[in-house]
């Protein structure tokens, strides 16, 4: 990482090394290297269709990379055995672009499922935990609603409650503000920051929303589809002030400068 830091080196949560990704023989991005430190709100940005969401899929273990490694706390994800993968996956929570709530289950059942899977807690205690998680995202009292009965913004929040069910170390967000009005989008940004601060989690956000990028991001990578790799990394505000790359400046200023 090009960015210089103070004398205390922050703990690296995720290290991506020499990563190539794509579908079959089609290479989408190659030679990607970056580190997400503990407590970061790390932004993966770039234009539409450049492969941001695909990169997220590779990092969270849904799509095997063509080449390269993803390390969680120094442990390789893709080279590990299934048990190791399961251990890593238990530590991460993902909020999908479409929220991806299980439509046949109520919000409470959605949030409860990960807890039922991974813990031996009693039903009553799980119910309490579920209510707490839903209250954290501002959805107290919506336990018995089905995903189809609530608004898009509420679905995002419910998805976040589910992603947080197991108190993950790392939270991933795929286009969190997609399809939300500006106010809901900002409220979600605030929520992300508050959760990072209070839970001490590390956050990785895939987005192209400039307002979110500057509001919450303290580190980032910029994907460029022309050169098929990362062309800039660092604090987004500093990138805007210091970057010499016309593509990065063009993106960060909505092409107005």
């Amino acid at each position: 990482m090009s960015e210089k830091r103070g004398s205390t080196v922050p703990e690296a949560k995720i290290v991506v090394r020499d990563l190539d990704m794509g579908y079959g023989s089609f290479v989408l991005m190659s030679g990607m290297n970056f580190t997400v430190s503990k407590g970061d709100i790390f932004i993966i940005m770039g234009g539409s269709g450049c492969g941001k969401s695909t990169l997220l899929k590779v990092i969270v273990g849904l799509l095997e990379p063509l080449h390269g490694q993803v390390f969680y706390d120094g442990v390789s994800f893709w080279e590990g055995d299934p048990q190791q993968k399961a251990r890593i996956m238990r530590k991460i929570g993902v909020l999908y672009q479409s929220s991806a709530l299980w439509s046949s289950m109520t919000l409470a059942e959605n949030v409860a499922l990960p807890l039922e899977q991974y813990t031996d807690l009693s039903k009553g205690y799980i119910r309490e935990l579920v209510s707490l998680k839903l209250a954290l995202v501002g959805l107290a009292g919506f336990e018995e609603f089905y995903p189809s009965e609530i608004s898009g913004g509420m679905r995002k929040r419910a998805g976040l409650a589910r992603a947080m069910a197991l108190d993950p170390d790392i939270l991933f967000f795929d286009e969190p503000s997609a399809g939300l009005d500006p106010v809901s989008a900002r409220l979600l940004d605030d929520l992300i920051r508050e959760l990072r601060d209070s839970l001490g989690a590390t956050v990785v956000v895939v987005t192209h929303e400039l307002q979110s990028i500057f509001a919450i991001g303290n580190n980032s990578v910029f994907l460029d589809p022309d050169t098929k790799t990362i062309i800039a990394s660092g604090n987004p505000k500093r990138l805007l002030a210091e970057s010499k790359d016309p593509k990065v400046i063009n993106f960060l200023t909505r092409g107005e400068r």
Partner: peptide, 16 residues
Amino acid sequence: TMQVNEEVDALKTLGI
């Protein structure tokens, strides 16, 4: 439809 809505992905990332 679950595949389209990323619900299957959500199961996988939870290790289910």
